[in-house]
Design a protein around this nucleic acid. Structure first.
Lengths: 190, 190
DNA sequence: CAATACTTTCAGTAGTTATTGAAAGTTCAG
DNA sequence: CTGAACTTTCAATAACTACTGAAAGTATTG
């Protein structure tokens, strides 16, 4: 591999250029999702690599420090998106990406639900309790406000619940099942 | 309204306490979604307010500067999540939140798809073109690598496409239609 | 058209998050 | 047990993002 290629992170090889392109875009998009760019790039690198990758590979290909590589690799392991593997006759730790996109989806969905959706649902429950408890003993004017407020909360709760159900089903059904559902839905829309 | 209440942003009134609780959690969650906390809090404030809200209300209730209030309100308008309204006999601009959660969902989904999913799809298309063009003329060993690489990209593409279709349908069907779909899906799973 | 009421912008600053690189820690072969 | 090979941690710092408040801009009213 020519030096210039390694240093500039560009490559004359179209396969590698293609990999680079994917890695960059995936990293960029990570930002929108509260995942830091480097972690997303490492994930992408592993996703497009057929061979297991070690810390030094990450450092070299993405031009990051050992610390960053180590921290983010561990982060990805914690998310369950990559796994540690060991290669015979090599003491280093290698990593591979779970490449089944539906499994990836399932993992991400479950984690994000736990971290992001459930706390909101719990909060809404508490909010509703507080409002419910204070229902009686309000003046007539206030009462209407309270009703509106409660209705909004309930609608949000209902939405989150339906959404959650759908996503669960998507995960359960997987690509094949979804083809069928998609077909059925299309008929309903018509 | 007692001063202490205004200053500390807490309230003895359970309805208001409930609102505060929701606003805080919504803001906190915004962080996970690449939406800044303040913008999410303003959105939540508008969501739980029955009356239109003006810049000064936002400043007062969330203890932020005029600049911040103005910037984030505009950001929310740009996202299409809130609207400007004018009140008779008042020169100020007021804002209201689109309270239909399904509409909110539709708006958010469409924007995020445009900003986050489409660029990835385009990139994958380009990546596949690059790989496709270089298909022939590879050594046998490389060829297998290329095949694997292409397969992964294609799987991701397929997933994004299916996912997009499902979300589109969710938006089209709305809550009622989804109840039905949900029922059908449950049967399929069994 | 001038005064007023309001909104937006922006330079400076504060606060937050990510990265580095070296030191400390761990594991393993001999 | 020791040294070498490797991984993790962490304090310092760089990079980025959000916030403030005052100044500039834009209606609206009398």
């Amino acid at each position: 591999m020519p030096d210039a290629t390694t240093l500039t992170n560009e490559s004359a090889d179209p396969i590698d250029a293609s990999r680079q392109m994917f890695i960059r875009r995936w990293g960029e998009m990570g930002g929108y999702w509260g995942i830091n760019r480097t972690m997303a790039e490492i994930h992408a690198l592993l996703f497009v690599s057929n061979e297991p990758i070690c810390t030094d590979d990450v450092m070299e290909r993405l031009l990051v420090s050992r610390g960053t590589a180590s921290t983010n690799l561990r982060g990805l392991v914690d998310w369950g998106l990559i796994e540690r593997v060991h290669l015979r006759g090599d003491r280093r730790e290698y990593f591979v990406c779970r490449t089944n996109v539906w499994e990836m989806f399932e993992t991400i969905v479950q984690q994000r639900r736990r971290r992001e959706v459930e706390p909101i649902v719990e909060t809404i429950d508490k909010c509703l309790e507080m409002v419910g408890a204070s229902k009686k003993g309000q003046a007539a004017g206030e009462s209407e406000n309270v009703t509106k407020f409660r209705t909004r909360l309930e609608e949000m709760q209902g939405f989150l619940s339906t959404f959650g159900t759908i996503v669960d089903m998507m995960v359960t059904l997987g690509p094949k099942g979804l083809e069928r559902v998609s077909g059925m839905m299309t008929k309903m829309v018509r």
